[in-house]
């Protein structure tokens, strides 16, 4: 039977979410893909879950994820595979304006 390789990565946590992740700037997570690693992170720090995911279980629209310097939107999204040892960054985007 094939076994699923589990990879450990370092996840960079944006400033206001660190209080949900043991007051750390970075946290370790495991997963063969970015989606798996983020799910593992949310498992380890349950208070992070509702910050990162909407009610449908999708990443919130302003939550962007990078592996190294690559935005995962350009590399396969949550299915982006991990080799282990990468830095995965959770990066917010911001928008708005005077009139909707």
């Amino acid at each position: 039977m094939p076994t699923t390789q589990t990879q450990t990565v370092t996840v960079r946590i944006p400033t206001p979410l660190r209080s949900y992740a043991g007051d750390q700037k970075t946290a370790e997570a495991e997963g063969a893909t970015v989606g798996d690693a983020l799910a593992d992170l949310a498992e380890r720090y349950p208070d992070l879950r509702e910050q990162l995911y909407d009610g449908d279980g999708d990443l919130r629209s302003f939550v962007n994820v990078y592996v190294g310097d690559e935005d995962i939107r350009h590399t396969g999204g949550a299915e982006t595979s991990l080799d282990g040892g990468e830095e995965v960054s959770i990066v917010p985007s911001v928008a708005g304006g005077a009139f909707g």
Binding site: G96, G97, G100
Partner: peptide, 20 residues
């Protein structure tokens, strides 16, 4: 907010990221 009040709009609320 050019020529508009310095108060958050609906768009500001919808598109703001995390609390804190």
């Amino acid at each position: 907010h050019p020529d508009a009040p310095a108060r958050p709009s609906e768009t500001d609320l919808t598109e703001a990221p995390f609390s804190g």
